[in-house]
Amino acid sequence: MTTALLLFHGLLSAALIGAITHQMLGAWWPARAASGAFFSRFRAVNVASYTNAIIVMFVIDAFVGGVLLYPIYRIGARLVIENMRLRAPVGLFDLKEHFLTIALGLLPAYWYFWRRPLVAEHATVRKLLTAIIAFAVWFGFLVGHFTNNIRGLW
């Protein structure tokens, strides 16, 4: 069951990374003209429509990782990693926990600034919030993957 949850957590995180990265690139680097090029089409999508899907995926992923899997890590894998005196991975995992909690707390503001019709004066805030959440999601994914390579949950 733990392995299945971990796989689901990883897959959902990958989907979330795809959505938030797409939205971030579309917000920071919008396509100026329609073009057939892959990156132009990638940037030309209506990124505001991603907002609710990103929030739903983030909350479900946080529940699976934070509520269902985190206690198993805390009393198992983390103690092993600490006994191996691998301090940096423990610290990185703690940072992941805090960065993702901050991103979770930012979701209400993120929803507020991305709701339609989009307010032009809020464009910078939208870009910044999206970048922070994207950074937290990428950081969480990489650190989680790295930690799982050191000591998985079993």
């Binding site: 301090r87 940096a88 423990v90 610290g91 990185l92 703690d94 940072l95 805090h98 960065f99 901050i102 707390g105 930012l106 503001a109 600034f113 809020h122 910078t124 805030v125 910044l128 919030l129 922070i132």
Partner: peptide, 23 residues
């Protein structure tokens, strides 16, 4: 409204500082 992301970045940096002992 830009205070919200700026505060978040400052708090993230504060966590890096508070956890520096691990790194």
């Amino acid at each position: 409204p830009g205070w919200t992301p700026i505060i978040a970045v400052v708090v993230m940096l504060a966590f890096v500082y508070l956890l520096r002992g691990w790194f």
